[in-house]
Amino acid sequence: MNLFPSAFLRITAVLFLGVALLAPVGVAAPAAAAAPAADPAPALMAVINKVIDLVLGKSPDAITSLLPQVRTKMSESFAIDAIVQRAFGRNWTKLTPAQQAQAVELLGNLIIRTYATQLASGSRPTLAVTASREIGPERREIVSTAAQDGKVVNVIYRLAPIDGQWKVYDVLAENVSVVGNYRQQFDAHFVKKSADELLALLKAKLDAPATEEKGKSE
């Protein structure tokens, strides 16, 4: 018998592995443009591999100092402002423009730091694209796998034409949507608490260590 139900480890492990791959770009909502014709999969994988190059083997402190570089690189293929806004969903309008800008900054940083810390704590993940296809008008999805330390995680990237190129607006790791997962958390938060409290919570999370236990278990 396992200590946790079998899904537990995979859920927690992949939640932020797939989440991954989100990078803050800016605060303004992206404007949809004509869909570029080229398959975005090679460019996306190239960006993710570059990010892995940046963070692999780095300590949590080093990763924190590298966050601006990681954001810049990931912004080539990820629309973090869209991801954050979608994560807030109907709660987005409860934030003032200033709070919205802060939310994009803080949540983007939180996601990137969590992902980068996980990447840095293992061997180099091997990425493979298994499918890249249209899923609707101006919507594509890239189905991929990330193999790391004997585990294989299925990751699906959803893309839309944003600012003239295909950009990721959601990531599903083992069927867990990053946007959907945060939206559940935010929905629960806004039942009883305010936007200011949420921003304070995000800031506190970022000020705390990247993991409860410092160091590697490897």
Binding site: P5, A7, F8, L9, R10, I11, T12, A13, L15, F16, V19, L110, I111, R113, T114, T117, Q118, S121, E174, N175, V176, S177, G180, N181, Y182, Q184, Q185, F186, A188, H189, L198, L201, L202, K205, A208, P209, A210, T211, E212, E213, S217
Partner: peptide
């Protein structure tokens, strides 16, 4: 390690884990 990362990256670890379990 996975549990700690989940807690560090979520604002409500209980809801995050519940949603992830549902999706899985």
């Amino acid at each position: 390690r996975a549990y700690d990362q989940l807690k560090a990256g979520s604002i409500d670890a209980y809801v995050a884990l519940r949603d992830a379990y549902s999706a899985q």
